[in-house]
Write a protein that binds this DNA or RNA. Structure first.
Lengths: 339, 339
DNA sequence: CCGAGTCTTTGAGACGATTCAAAAGAATCT
DNA sequence: AGATTCTTTTGAATCGTCTCAAAGACTCGG
């Protein structure tokens, strides 16, 4: 019931607290006999080291905060798993926080993590430039931006979203689509803006032959995708786009559901391509084409950069790692269309 | 850069550390003038309270550990979100840990959480009776079992899985199926065993008219569901079941993919019903029938019980809350079959 | 048996915030 | 003014662990 401390262990093993601490942290400098005695005492008492006190003394925590935009998006879960697998090897811990795209929640989580004096924070910020993050860094908490470009104050890992958007756009154009809709928002989210910019440039490269519509969304959720899908399905056929590029797979899934419920065929009546290539994309009603991001690698790399910075704060130079996205073609955009 | 402490704040505000602490914790007992001065000093220095030191002194943490079987299963993400929403209102924090169905990982996470002296732990244990959990409780960390039956040592919240299995079985039988396969495993997971027991009892109630096959799986993943699906699809039509009850929606999704890739129609050639009713079930290639569990409510209730126990450890009586599952019929089991 | 050199063990401060008894200061009443 | 009460502020002790200088115990060569 009562939690034991190092002192009780020391008493039972008839050694000083310093020795117990040594057994715990540098067992090799303690004589085997003493070490054994201490281990027995620990076992007998059911002693569990108080990491809080240790942390207070040592000043460095072994946990890393990861603040993501949306835990219910499997993309971020995969990123988190990537980060966690690296953390595991450094016996640290990742605590996953969900900002749910809300600045207030994001800030609360950052406050909490800073108060806990975490080793560092990985974050996919809600807004591009957040004074909170900058202050955090200024006060000494290392931060790595995930799936977001750095401002120079920190490291970052990202995937080239502009390129992704361009690839998606080019693919749809190559498939003969001349009326394409970008489904996503808000544009204040950097990733969304970039993907939009990418598809815009692909459309521009087609020299006026292709028309780009844009529907703005407030959140990148299945529900929002469905809602927009409903509106699109309701359009008269000649005003309707023939293809939709959704800012992420969640939206694409929702959009797809709306098509189905309105009896529109995918890809015959309307082709869809999503973004992220989450595992569920392949299992969708119509298997979803998507732009694949190296999800786990993103998380892995982010925490690598953080650990690097923590290990050698002095000679650390902030870096920006950028990965390339891939096009994954599935049924939802498989059809070639007569232009 | 250097993190400030209460002492520096006290110096700048020309008060004692005690007063600063009071401003932080019981501002109402400090005179307005002093309070203001302290706030200014805090702001000027960019002081952030060290929660670690606070915790050490106070002895009570504000964080709760949640250890789940599989973060990539949206079911658990929803449970986590339920828990988090309650934690938010009590300004505590939920840290989400993934055992990934592995006893070793589970134990490492529990150790870490105990060392951090978390307020309590919510856990979906890998194995039914874990000595680790019992020791944890014996040493004083409150535990609530989630989606798992209690042993009397702790509170628990769960959904009646046996009933769920029964409902699923009865539904398939009512739809005319006479050869049903249970897809799932391992049976060491209580939920799986119960769902299996449920469908078994439904089949038994049909008085020998219905045959129940069981395919055992090692993990409850999409990949495993797909693998089993492949094997089932390869069976000669007369040996093949006409319906599959999958232990969760992840498996059902994988199973469904295998059917599609082998040209088997769902539900015509084979009906499928899953379990959990995760959001993606409705968006599947063939919208998936499923047994719905109150996912968020599960998380909410679990943490409620924990907070209750922490608030009044003395007069707390452990409780077991059990919810009822619901049948959600979608296309994957919609067809009536001539028996 | 002494002294130098190795190994081990010791124990008194930190670390940063909270607490609480007691002191100091203000306000009120005679 | 002095006594009494109420409000604020103080600062030393405390939480559990780590660190490190220094003491103690041993070994070994001379």
């Amino acid at each position: 019931m009562a939690t034991r401390n190092i002192k009780e262990v020391a008493q039972l093993a008839r050694v000083s607290v310093g020795t117990v601490s040594n057994v715990l942290n540098r067992p090799e400098i303690v004589s085997p006999a003493t070490r054994e005695r201490v281990f027995e005492a620990i076992k007998k008492l059911g002693f569990v080291r108080n990491e809080v006190a240790r942390h207070l003394r040592v000043g460095r925590s072994r946990t890393v905060g990861l603040v993501v935009l949306d835990v219910s998006n499997p993309f971020f879960v995969d990123v988190a798993q990537g980060a966690e697998s690296v953390a595991d090897d450094h016996d640290s811990m990742v605590v996953l926080c969900n900002s749910a795209g809300d600045t207030g929640r994001e800030r609360r989580h950052l406050d909490q993590l800073e108060q806990q004096r975490v080793m560092g924070i990985l974050i996919t910020p809600v807004e591009m430039e957040s004074p909170w993050v900058e202050e955090l860094i200024a006060r000494g908490t290392p931060v790595v931006l995930v799936d977001s470009p750095a401002t120079g104050l920190q490291c970052s890992v990202a995937v080239d979203d502009r390129l992704g958007g361009q690839i998606a756009g080019a693919h749809l154009i190559e498939r003969g689509h001349r009326r394409i809709m970008f489904v996503g928002g808000p544009m204040s989210i950097k990733q969304v803006a970039d993907r939009h910019a990418g598809v815009t440039s692909a459309v521009a490269a087609a020299d006026g032959a292709v028309e780009l519509l844009t529907s703005s969304a407030h959140t990148l959720t299945v529900a929002e995708g469905r809602a927009i899908g409903e509106r699109v399905a309701a359009l008269p056929p000649d005003e309707r786009p023939t293809a939709a590029f959704c800012a992420n797979d969640m939206m694409a899934l929702g959009f797809l559901q709306a098509m189905a419920s309105h009896g529109l065929r995918v890809p015959e009546d309307l082709a869809i391509i999503g973004y992220d290539d989450i595992d569920f994309a392949a299992a969708a009603a119509v298997p979803l084409s998507s732009i694949r991001q190296p999800r786990e690698l993103l998380g892995r790399t982010a925490i690598d950069l953080l650990l690097e910075e923590v290990a050698e704060p002095e000679q650390h130079r902030h870096r920006q790692v950028i990965f390339q996205p891939d096009l994954v073609i599935r049924e939802s955009s498989a059809l070639r269309r007569d232009a």
